[in-house]
Amino acid sequence: MPPDVPVEREITRLLHRWKEGDREALASLASLAYEDLHAIAIGYLRREVAGHTLQATGLVNELYLRLAQVRGVQLTNRRHFYTFAAQLMRMILIDHARQTRALKRPGSGVRVPLHEEMAWIDASSDEMLALDVALDQLEALEERKVRVIELRFFLGCTNEETAQLLDVSRATIDRDLEFAKTWLYRRLSAPPPSAG
């Protein structure tokens, strides 16, 4: 299909504004990226994507390239871009879970693990909504851990890549992941009466 010219132009404009520090522009960018990311998220939930693991990164790359090919836009902050995409992906999956619940659709009976390392979370059910809440709580305690989880499990980055994107050592990421997963697991398997 031919490139979507108006959208390209819009992306360019938003990127310029984003470059100049306009956070709103980033939010608008999100809406443009949403469609693409949504497609891969849904495909994943239907288990149509080879490998059975969520890997939105490829699509994000594609989006990124489309932006980078536009003249004058140098996405110097690639890190920012991926982090943003990972958050967006989380949003999409949560939205989807919420909609499924609202429509009271009968589940397919097939569990879709969020990630092989997070096999105890069914990405297409209420468990996702609980995870979302837990992530917000964890974020209040330590923001980076949530970014790590998002990049690793919502976008499909490897540990190495996550380390690279967050500019910390691989060992730190390994430890962050171990701790965050444990923390989330405990919260979700036996939610305490009060948050903290």
């Binding site: 890997q55 990164t57 490829g58 790359n61 990124y64 390239l65 991926y82 980055c157 890549e161």
Partner: peptide
């Protein structure tokens, strides 16, 4: 590494 994809693409 899926990030390296981007480097290869460019």
């Amino acid at each position: 590494s899926v990030l390296s994809e981007l480097n290869r693409a460019t």
